[in-house]
């Protein structure tokens, strides 16, 4: 230690004086010094944009940015009363204009919620199934675990192209068999809202189930194996073991996984843009992107509503699972 200090003191110049200054800081000062980079970055790329989005959402901004009028909550009021629908692409709406399937699927809010709920539900169920298989001991399971995360590494553009080609009604080889089952429209499949929404949900489940499986697997492996031996002695069936031991113990893990996935699913955009289009399958993020060059105030208001919905989902899940979840 003493040779170290001896060498340090022989150096001179700005670096040493900065080092010496840093050494004399208290713990608190030092802690904040090291946090400066992350604060600055988060401030510039996250906090500032959030506040600015809120500010922009209070203004009516014309398409050429020449006039900016303060309208207060006007954008939000118009959004929820249907006045903004004329700016949304392809006749889509923000809230549904009726309760028929067509009207529901034409609404960005409803489509986003349908997408999030359905895809997260199936991803959790399939992920749980995969995790239960991977939790068993068998030869080669490490390779299989690596293989199932492949879809996670597949870029959304490629995912989109692959699903586009598989389901395109002209060239896709999967459309005819599924259309025979009545699941998809036989022609113009990707321009049919119900079919395209279905395909996009399938694409998302394909990409993310394995990710869920890995998260749940981590929870499964932390369960004490002795519990199962006790259960076997007590004569519990496999189903009872799952219901009384496995499921309650992995519930917190599932909670966190569902939380992360729901936040992601609520902001779906890329897969819609690459497989179909935002006019066929409207999502909230789609509406933000579609309006931000022409109607900045509207775009900001939709963005802020999206953030608020995500905030509510997160708080709901945290309340359900308790704070330990995070």
């Amino acid at each position: 230690m003493s040779t170290e200090t001896g060498r340090e003191s022989r150096r001179s110049g700005a670096l040493v004086s900065v080092m010496r200054w840093m050494e004399n800081l208290s713990d608190t000062q030092y802690a904040y010094l090291l946090l400066i980079p992350v604060f600055v970055l988060l401030g510039v790329v996250a906090l500032y944009p959030l506040l600015r989005t809120f500010e922009l959402s209070l203004f009516a901004i014309s398409a050429d940015f020449s006039s900016t009028n303060f309208v207060g909550a006007g954008n939000y009021v118009e959004l929820f009363t249907g006045g903004k629908n004329r700016y949304l692409p392809g006749g889509t709406t923000f809230l549904p204009e009726g309760f028929g399937l067509g009207a529901l699927l034409n609404s960005a809010l409803v489509v986003t919620i349908i997408f999030a709920v359905t895809s997260v539900l199936f991803e959790t169920l399939i992920g749980l199934g995969q995790a239960l298989i991977l939790d068993q001991d068998f030869y080669g399971r490490r390779w299989i675990r690596a293989a199932i995360i492949i879809p996670w590494a597949v870029p959304v553009v490629i995912q989109g192209i692959i699903f586009f080609l598989m389901f395109n009604s002209n060239v896709g080889f999967l459309t005819p068999p599924l259309a025979d089952l009545g699941l998809l429209a036989p022609t113009n499949t990707l321009n049919d809202t119900a079919s395209a929404t279905f395909i996009i949900i399938v694409a998302d489940i394909w990409k993310t189930s394995a990710f869920m499986a890995l998260l749940i697997l981590a929870g499964l492996q932390s369960i004490d194996r002795g519990l199962y031996d006790v259960a076997k002695v007590a004569g519990a069936t496999k189903w009872q073991q799952f219901k009384l031991i496995t499921f309650p113990l992995i519930l917190p893990t599932i909670g966190v996984a569902v939380l992360f996935r729901s936040v992601q699913a609520m902001r779906v955009y890329g897969i819609i843009d690459t497989v179909s289009s935002c006019t066929v399958v409207p999502s909230l993020s789609c509406m933000v992107v579609a309006t931000f060059t022409t109607r900045e105030g509207t775009s900001a208001a939709i963005a802020f509503v999206t953030a608020a919905i995500i905030g509510i989902v997160v708080m709901g899940l945290i309340a359900w699972q308790g704070e330990d979840a995070i």
């Binding site: 713990d27 946090l35 992350v38 989005t53 902001r267 997160v314």
Partner: peptide, 27 residues
């Protein structure tokens, strides 16, 4: 490190996790 507002700092960082990309997009 133990320092004042430590949990607040962590929550602030976590909070950005929840910000949807489009919210940051326009500004």
């Amino acid at each position: 490190y133990r320092f004042p507002y430590k949990n607040a700092v962590f929550l602030f960082i976590l909070f950005t996790l929840l910000l949807p990309v489009p919210v940051r997009f326009v500004p």
